[in-house]
Design a protein around this nucleic acid. Structure first.
Lengths: 362, 362
DNA sequence: GCGCATTCTGTAAGCGCATACATGACTCTG
DNA sequence: CAGAGTCATGTATGCGCTTACAGAATGCGC
């Protein structure tokens, strides 16, 4: 692990100048075949690997795209169960990696640390040509600054409204339409009328949009539409989902007929809590989630949910970045809305087999 | 997207030298609070983001670890089904990302392109402080060269034997012990005696080790142990698994009692093929896989398999790299063997509920 | 108010590569 | 065989930052 060889070493060993060594890698055809072979041989002997840093510095580009995502680790998830630990950021990663590869980019990923998220973005932003950020991982204001210098696309978050609307590119999913359709399904197809929405305490535009979709479906069907979510969970984890379910069961008028959760994690938690209380899902209480994480298909009953097209979201993010990197810089910020699908599974009363689902929204 | 601001711009704007700007980021305490604030304010105004390339070049380290993995995309997998597309490289990624984050590193990932794998490694190797490579993604010889200059750990592949044993660090899994235990289970607990092993045509030490474990269990129980795998699939995909199952069913003596597949993908393909032929799994034929991909729990019957600890493998890889990066450089190459677990599910006849499984090997 | 220790800040020299430009070696044309 | 045109290679500069080292500022004791 002695000090690594550089172009200078390779140049000396093969009797050429460093410019020629550089050309061998950047533009092989511009070097005579014989010379090229000599250089490559020397490089091989030395174990030479071009420094990405130096190359990037000199050429002003890295060939790397980035992704910042929140640390979604749910402490409730059984650490032994690898499958259950797969959340949807993994699917975005996979989608981005695939698309990035097609365009000749590598992918740099980093989850926000509790320490200081600022260092996170800076670290990633400084090493990539452009990057995607999952909503609410990083203050929008900070992203605004960065996006003046390089492309940034926000995933699964709406553009900021009002005075300070941001200028980032966005890729959203049809939260409103998806939740409305799912709620409509509960009301019309299963005849449920006492529905409780489990939201989150922290401000989240996604959760808010889902709640509004929920309300819209209630109103359309003349079902009691509460002003507020029945519960606002402190965090959107299984433990909080369980707590929410317990709270709702303890109410004077008994549990609602359906528990409409703002994400799958909480829904799974609710499932467990209801089971512990001796209630049967979906016969006593229906439960639904949102997101479409793999775990939703592993629990029993399988979880009815609204599936987000995570893979595609990752791919679209890369396409957007690539377009920005090669295109006219001045163009206006883009907002792409991706459709979701309602996955009707067992927890709403649709039986064990997953029903075919259609795209909603966008 | 005008040209990005640099330390020089920030220095000028805040009336200090570039060295002070640099110190504000690298070593904040060494700058008087008042000066620091001025610099940070200027940086904010300008939308300054330190260049990772320049920093890396000057400081000779990147703060990034890497992972190269093969492009495992199985063309048979329903592209619409995101969950099924999650293969085990995703879990390694997640494991590495977590561990890397704990140590203050980001993670750079890249799958090998069909084009030229050499460019892949070079690209990654040049941009990271150290990296992991999944076995058979990159020629060992090339890795050898690179590993002279920076830490490289090979995942899920044994050290090269014989004349050219490599000097890389390795993290392996207990292929042999796992497959032997699973096979023993089929023979002793389910009383099966006519077993067929579905291997792969390409040379793979993993598959070979699994086959040897299979043989060992057969011999130990006095069951016919074939010299060769019953089928050597061209690729380890679902399509090839299905083809293998069909081939075995077409034999004169009828299908075997159990189809022991070298990986889950093929096992799932076999499951489908058997179903198409009207055979019932596990009653007519038992089927087993290897790996423990999420898909194995989604298919019916659920797939009995040997689960590899992918998350942990990713974490251990990072720990190893970090140790190398901060430690005594001269130490000998390490080989870490991780235990596997036999997941007894429905496809071997163990019933729908997954049985508790114990660690095997290592 | 002086000398000295202690902070704080500036100066300058690279880090390893890409690349514009200059140079040299040939080939071709007339 | 001179001059123009090609192609292969070398020279020199700078990309934006870190980091010795040197120098200025500040604090302290007496």
């Amino acid at each position: 692990m002695s000090t690594a060889p550089t172009v200078y070493d390779v140049a000396e060993r093969s009797g050429v100048s460093i410019a020629t060594v550089s050309r061998v890698y950047r533009n092989p055809d511009s070097v005579r075949a014989q010379t090229r072979e000599r250089v490559l041989a020397a490089a091989r002997d030395l174990g030479y690997v071009p420094s990405g840093n130096a190359r990037g510095l000199a050429s002003r580009s890295t060939g790397v795209l980035g992704l910042c995502f929140p640390d979604y680790a749910d402490p409730d998830t059984d650490a032994e169960d690898d499958d259950a630990a797969m959340l949807y950021s993994d699917q975005i990663i996979r989608g981005m990696e695939r698309a990035a590869r097609r365009h000749g980019y590598a992918l740099l990923i980093a989850a926000s640390l509790k320490g200081g998220p600022e260092s996170l973005v800076a670290k990633v932003a400084g090493r990539v040509d452009g990057f995607a950020v999952m909503a609410r991982t990083v203050p929008t204001e900070e992203l605004e600054g960065i996006s003046r210098r390089r492309p940034v696309v926000m995933l699964a978050g709406p553009r900021e409204e009002g005075d300070h609307l941001d200028h980032l590119d966005h890729i959203e999913v049809a939260n409103y339409d998806g939740q409305r359709e799912l709620t409509r399904h509960l009301i019309e197809d299963h005849g449920l009328r006492r529905l409780a929405f489990v939201g989150s305490a922290e401000e989240s535009p996604d959760v808010e949009a889902r709640f509004q979709g929920f309300l819209a479906a209630c109103r359309a069907a003349d079902v009691d539409a509460p002003e507020e979510p029945a519960v606002r969970a402190a965090m959107m984890t299984q433990a909080e989902g369980a707590r929410a379910a317990d709270a709702l069961c303890g109410r004077a008028d008994g549990p609602p007929q359906a528990l409409v959760c703002a994400n799958d994690q909480m829904a799974v938690g609710a499932l467990h809590a209801l089971e512990r209380r001796g209630l049967t899902v979906p016969d006593d209480v229906a439960v639904t989630g949102f997101d479409g994480i793999p775990l939703g298909r592993l629990v029993r009953p399988t979880l009815t949910t609204v599936r987000q097209p995570m893979l595609r979201m990752g791919e679209e993010a890369v396409e957007l970045l690539v377009r920005r990197l090669s295109g006219t810089p001045g163009s206006d910020p883009v907002s792409l809305m991706l459709p979701v699908t309602v996955a009707r599974r067992a927890s709403c009363g649709c039986g064990p087999e997953e029903r075919s689902a259609v795209a909603i929204g966008a």
